[in-house]
Write a protein that binds this DNA or RNA. Structure first.
Length: 332
DNA sequence: CGCTTATCTCTGTCCAGTCG
DNA sequence: CGACTGGACAGAGATAAGCG
């Protein structure tokens, strides 16, 4: 009984702690770089995928014969089991997500849940609860030299569908209605309700067919999700250079069409700039009025070329809406 | 060398609001 | 008015966590 509980703890150990645990059990202490620690490195040679585990202790199967103490034997068995699990998981993920390993692009990930993985690649004693305890503690280096967590290979159907929809929308010059997207997906053998497609679009900030030609920014600018403008959320804004957009929840009339956007700006330090909005330093009265009377939302895009990008965005905005955002046009 | 429960996430239904 | 999207919500399903 107690053994099971402790075994769960062994599975939950981050790699650093796990290696310490192995060292303590085997009394073999070795130097290793704690900061650059990952379970395995995945490589491609001659068009074949394979991986290397730099730290052999993570794959070793230890013999229990030389020990008499029950406690040590238990620990060694746990280590052996975790090593077996890890190897099994990585081997099969290499196979299942092979397209992704080659390209490094999220869109090439196939949807996968823990449950599915277990039914595809069963292993004795490996169950859902153990999988969910071990996976988040395993990181690997991809052929593209990025360290990723194995958890990110288990993407939900929703994410998978979202990426598909993004691809479809990006590939089509014409604005697509959700029904059009649904039809294209059906041809690929995927049946989704309109509501789900709508949700997927929203999760990746993909415009709907009405909004598509009213976007004043190009595909290559990706804003973060909307953040409510409040003191509480200041820590979500990075101290980096970029452009930002302020909007309110209701639409405002512009010359050509309506929009929620009230201001577009840029700064060398986004957080510092936004902090100013809460003091008395804000001189733009129009903006001040908006912020005081409505819930205001912020989103930003980090870029070193913030001044140039801001200019382009304002120009685009004017050509689509007939005028600058309300709070930009006055005194700005 | 699990089982159970709490919590989170996803997906579809219903309906309201917007646009032309 | 019809066509369409988006919000609230509920049921189902997946995952994280508690425990003997």
């Amino acid at each position: 009984m107690v053994g099971k509980i402790i075994f769960s703890k062994v599975l939950e150990m981050p790699l650093v702690n796990y290696i310490r645990f192995i060292e303590k059990t085997t009394k073999q202490y070795l130097e290793f770089d704690k900061k650059k620690l990952f379970y395995a490195k995945i490589m491609i040679r001659d068009g074949t995928l394979f991986f290397e585990v730099p730290d052999k202790r993570l794959v070793n199967i230890y013999s229990t014969e030389n020990y008499t103490k029950n406690k040590i034997i238990c620990s060694l068995i746990w280590i052996n089991t975790r090593n077996k699990f890890s190897l099994h998981i990585l081997r099969n993920l290499l196979h299942y997500q092979s397209k992704y390993w080659f390209s490094g692009k999220e869109i090439d990930l196939k949807p996968l849940t823990y449950k599915q993985f277990l039914s595809l690649y069963p292993l004795q004693y490996l169950d859902q609860s153990r999988l969910s305890r071990l996976i988040p503690n395993l990181s690997v280096m991809t052929p593209q030299n990025q360290v990723i967590n194995l958890k990110s290979l288990f993407i939900s159907k929703k994410k998978y569908h979202s990426y598909l929809i993004k691809e479809i929308v990006d590939d089509n010059e014409n604005p697509l209605k959700d029904k059009d997207i649904q039809y294209i997906l059906t041809q690929k053998g995927i049946n989704l309700s309109l509501r789900t497609i709508c949700n997927c679009r929203k999760s990746l900030n993909i415009p709907n067919y009405r909004e598509k030609d009213s976007y004043y920014y190009e595909k290559d600018i990706t804003f973060n999700d909307y953040i409510m403008l409040s003191k509480k959320n200041l820590n979500k804004i990075p101290n980096d250079a970029g452009v930002y957009e302020l909007s309110i929840s209701s639409k405002i009339d512009y010359l050509n069409r309506r929009s929620n956007v009230i201001y577009i700006g840029s700064s060398k330090n986004l957080r510092k700039r936004i902090v100013n909005y809460f003091g008395n330093k804000l001189k733009n009265n129009c903006l001040k009025n908006f912020i005081n009377s409505y819930d205001t939302f912020l989103r930003f895009c980090l870029t070193g070329d913030h001044i140039l990008v801001e200019k382009t965005l304002l120009k685009n905005f004017r050509s689509i809406y007939g005028m600058l955002p309300k709070a930009n046009s006055v005194g700005g």
